[in-house]
């Protein structure tokens, strides 16, 4: 048994991406990406469909490894470690860099088992510990009051919004340092969306959030930094209020003013 370490962030930098290219077979989906993602902030990624937002997000916890023929060049550093290094431990990476998907994907188990699935994966067995984790995670996801009486019910019986928040709680249960969210609200109703946005603002005290969103108002509502992508390139990144009020690049301006995309 060895302990899973955490990444050590320096200078408030969580992720550094340098000259990164990504290929699906012969198709280059990301071109020369350079980005710095700050710690304890919400970074939004926006851009038209197919520009590579999900692709970039998935390369931050190497979910891209599952895609046949996907190749990454360049450097992605988290806490100073190159995550595409041979020595990188995938379990360690994904435990610390959690992910919430576009569509809620609860496991066919009880609410309780969904949440403790991750902790159990990493060898936490004591009932008392697990109970505590469940409470902490559900509180973290602001649904403890809602769910504390139905912990043993199947997670599949929850509403879509509840399922998505449960998936967030499930991700929080292993105490990730970074949380990747790929359009986490696009399959949800406005009320659930509001709850999740509120949740994210709460969460950034403890976690660094990177969120892909199609919804520019959402980006302005919750994010601190925004990066704009187009055709596999990062066009511009900066403070959200600045990007949306006075973008430097013409293409960004066109996009945020709704002229195209």
């Amino acid at each position: 048994m060895k302990t899973i370490e955490q990444f050590k962030f320096e200078n408030k930098i969580a992720v550094e991406i340098r000259e990164m290219d990504l290929f699906y077979g012969n198709f280059q989906a990301l071109k020369k990406i350079n980005m710095t993602i700050p710690e304890n902030r919400i970074t939004a990624m926006i851009g038209p469909s197919g520009c590579g937002k999900s692709t970039l997000l998935k390369s931050l916890n190497r979910m891209n490894d599952l895609v046949e023929g996907c190749r990454v060049e360049g450097v992605i550093q988290i806490g100073g470690q190159n995550i595409y290094d041979k020595a990188m431990n995938l379990s360690m990476l994904r435990k610390n860099v959690g992910m919430v998907f576009q569509r809620p994907n609860p496991f066919a188990m009880s609410v309780y088992d969904n949440i403790v699935y991750g902790p159990r994966t990493f060898g936490i067995k004591k009932k008392a510990d697990l109970d505590e984790i469940v409470e902490r995670s559900l509180k973290g996801a602001a649904m403890w009051e809602e769910l504390k009486d139905r912990l043993n019910k199947s997670a599949l019986g929850l509403s879509g919004g509840q399922q998505q928040r449960l998936c967030i709680a499930r991700a929080l249960a292993v105490e990730p340092q970074i949380l990747l969210m790929d359009e986490p609200t696009s399959a949800l109703d406005p009320i659930s969306t509001g709850k999740i946005e509120e949740l994210c603002t709460e969460l950034k005290k403890d976690v660094t959030i990177v969120m892909v969103t199609h919804n520019m108002q959402q980006a302005t509502r919750i994010s601190d930094k925004t990066a704009f992508f187009l055709l596999g390139e990062m066009v511009e990144m900066g403070d959200t209020h600045k990007i949306f009020s006075m973008p430097e690049n013409k293409k960004t301006e066109d996009y945020i003013t709704g002229r195209f995309g």
């Binding site: 994904r94 992910m99 609860p106 994966t121």
Partner: peptide, 10 residues
């Protein structure tokens, strides 16, 4: 479902 578990580091 597979992705959900893998993304947790399982």
């Amino acid at each position: 479902v597979r992705e959900g578990s893998l993304a947790l580091g399982a």
